[in-house]
């Protein structure tokens, strides 16, 4: 079981961003991607999630062996892919509770209604774990949230939706150290042999709390180097200069 990316080429407005990217994230593993700005990290996560701004010209993404090219964004989500956004959208007038409820309802067979009592009980329990004030349930999705609140909200959604593969796009950006620990705790609580993670980050700091099994360096739309957790430490020390000399 894995999320597999094979020879992925993708472009936006005619500019090729991904240039033959290969990556396999087996269930049970945490993979981190690091890389300089503009290397295509966020693009990769959006393409896996199905964003239609990007044109995939070659290659494929396999979810447990099944090509998801023809699946729409919502279908990919229901199939088990979760993208924790770097910049989560604000949705005025839609409460967090209604949003989460709609997302869970969408996973039920037609005609089946979500159990409201169980839903709220579960949501409150998860919010407590993430040290989120219950007032967030009635607030509009991400509207007026601080950077840290938005990221916690992403993790809350991830926990509630119980995906098979989690893509975390710079989840550490905008987080103070306490919030980072809480978010990392939420992520770590979800680690299991049935779930894979792709953690995109600029900083080693996040990987102190979410220990990766593998670290990859991305540059110019490709994975150019892979290694263990120690690779992140090396990057923190020496930066990406080695890419220029490679």
């Amino acid at each position: 079981m894995s999320l597999t990316i094979e020879n992925l080429h993708a472009s936006v407005d005619g500019n090729e961003i991904l240039k033959g990217l290969n990556l396999e994230i087996p269930a049970g593993e945490v993979h981190a991607i690091m890389g300089p700005n503009g290397s295509g990290k966020s693009t990769l996560s959006k393409i896996i999630a199905g964003h239609d701004d990007y044109e995939v010209s070659e290659g494929r993404v396999l979810l447990d062996g099944v090509d998801i090219a023809k699946l729409a964004v919502d279908e990919r989500s229901r199939a088990g892919i979760f993208l924790a956004f770097q910049y989560p959208a604000e949705v005025p007038g839609v409460s967090n509770a209604n949003f989460l409820r709609a997302a869970l309802q969408a996973r039920l067979p037609e005609g089946e209604e979500i159990d409201a009592v169980a839903f709220y009980k579960n949501m409150y329990a998860k919010m407590d774990e993430l040290e989120m004030n219950r007032k967030f349930t009635s607030r509009s999705v991400n509207e007026g949230f601080s950077g840290g609140e938005k990221k916690r909200n992403e993790i809350l959604q991830m926990i509630m939706l119980d995906p098979r593969y989690c893509l975390l796009d710079e989840t550490d950006s905008g987080l103070d150290i306490d919030a980072l620990k809480v978010v990392a705790k939420g992520v770590n609580s979800m680690r299991s042999e049935n779930r894979g993670f792709l953690v995109i980050t600029h900083y080693q700091r996040l990987l102190d709390y979410i220990k990766p099994d593998h670290v990859h360096v991305m540059a110019d739309g490709q994975i150019v180097k892979s290694g263990g957790a120690e690779l992140a430490l090396k990057l923190e020390e020496s930066g990406y200069d080695f890419l220029k000399t490679a």
Binding site: A72, D74, A103
Partner: peptide, 10 residues
């Protein structure tokens, strides 16, 4: 896109 990325239909 955000809502759909949570499984909600278009």
């Amino acid at each position: 896109f955000y809502l759909m990325a949570r499984g909600i239909t278009a």
